[in-house]
């Protein structure tokens, strides 16, 4: 048994909103030398592309835990809010 985030949609349910609830200022991420969001996000929503020098955030599998909001030292968010009512992660049991 192992947590494999490639399969997260097999065990955690989401009602994905078209409109992302978190948006980044790519210029701030580009000059950030910490990028703690990449390893701290428990859902692996943040990926840094070294070649393109670009941070990508994918909101589809976001668990809405708040980790990135706290670890981002440069406040790179142009938007950080919870999804609109009824959208986002849906825990069934847990």
């Amino acid at each position: 048994m192992k947590i494999n985030l490639d399969e997260i949609f097999d065990y955690t349910s989401f009602n994905v909103d078209r409109d992302p609830h978190i948006k980044l200022d790519e210029q701030i991420c580009k000059i950030c030398d910490q990028r703690s969001c990449v390893n701290c996000c428990p859902a692996r929503c943040y990926t840094w592309d070294e070649e393109k020098q670009k941070m990508t955030f994918v909101h589809d599998g976001c668990l809405e835990c708040g980790t990135c909001y706290v670890v981002c030292e440069n406040d790179a968010f142009t938007r950080w809010r919870y999804p609109r009512g009824g959208f986002g992660v849906c825990f069934r049991m847990t």
Binding site: I8, T12, C65, T67, F91
Partner: peptide, 10 residues
């Protein structure tokens, strides 16, 4: 055991 759900919060 079998994994049923994965969750996270602060």
């Amino acid at each position: 055991g079998k994994l049923l759900e994965y969750s996270a919060h602060l």
